[in-house]
């Protein structure tokens, strides 16, 4: 890679790595895994950087790689490893103490953990990264209609999970 292109890559990483890592965290619920996934995604990005630079849409491509790397990391590597599900997500609060949970920032993460990975990705990309339906579909490699339906289902489940909290008004807006 040329020096100028490499400098731009470094600049991109410096400014976007943290945000990409946060997206990864919401997808996997573990900071260490999120950092590993982000780092892996950035290495993959390096290899295709000159081509992506020419085509444009670096941010969207980087986010797409982070999502796929993170979701790949959630797949069990062997029949003995169990990942995903609520037990996978880090939680410091006592799960029986609903008041403590409601007050904890982890409550949303725990709720996300109940969602299937695709639905979780739809919610994170739509409402954390504030992507449009089309942009989310591009990042996930699926149709916009799928994003809408997955998001609607995800919001319904989140509302059920978070019923005692104040998140009662965001269900039913998958589109």
């Amino acid at each position: 890679m040329k020096t100028s292109a490499e400098s731009e890559y470094v600049e991109f990483v410096t400014h976007h790595a943290d945000r990409l890592c946060r997206t990864a965290y919401l997808l996997c619920g573990d900071w260490r895994r999120a950092e590993d996934a982000t780092q892996e995604a950035l290495i993959r990005l390096y290899r295709v950087w000159p081509r992506i630079q020419r085509k444009g849409g670096i941010g969207a491509y980087a986010r797409k790689v982070v999502v796929s790397t993170t979701l790949d990391g959630l797949r069990p590597r062997s029949s003995r490893e169990v990942v995903g599900g609520s037990t996978y997500f880090t939680a410091t609060a006592d799960p029986d103490d609903r008041i403590a949970l409601a007050e904890s920032r982890l409550v949303i993460v725990r709720a996300l953990a109940q969602l299937p990975p695709r639905q979780r990705a739809c919610v994170v990309l739509r409402y954390f990264d504030e992507l449009s339906v089309d942009e989310t579909a591009a990042a996930l490699g699926c149709r916009p209609g799928t994003v809408k339906s997955q998001t609607t289902r995800a919001l319904e489940r989140l509302r059920a999970e978070l019923a005692p909290s104040t998140l009662s008004d965001f269900a039913g807006h998958g589109g």
Partner: peptide
Amino acid sequence: MTQDLKTRLDEATDRPTAFVP
């Protein structure tokens, strides 16, 4: 209407140190 969810997601990813690879 979804602002509350976004706020929750933002808060959930708050941490003292930023990720710097």
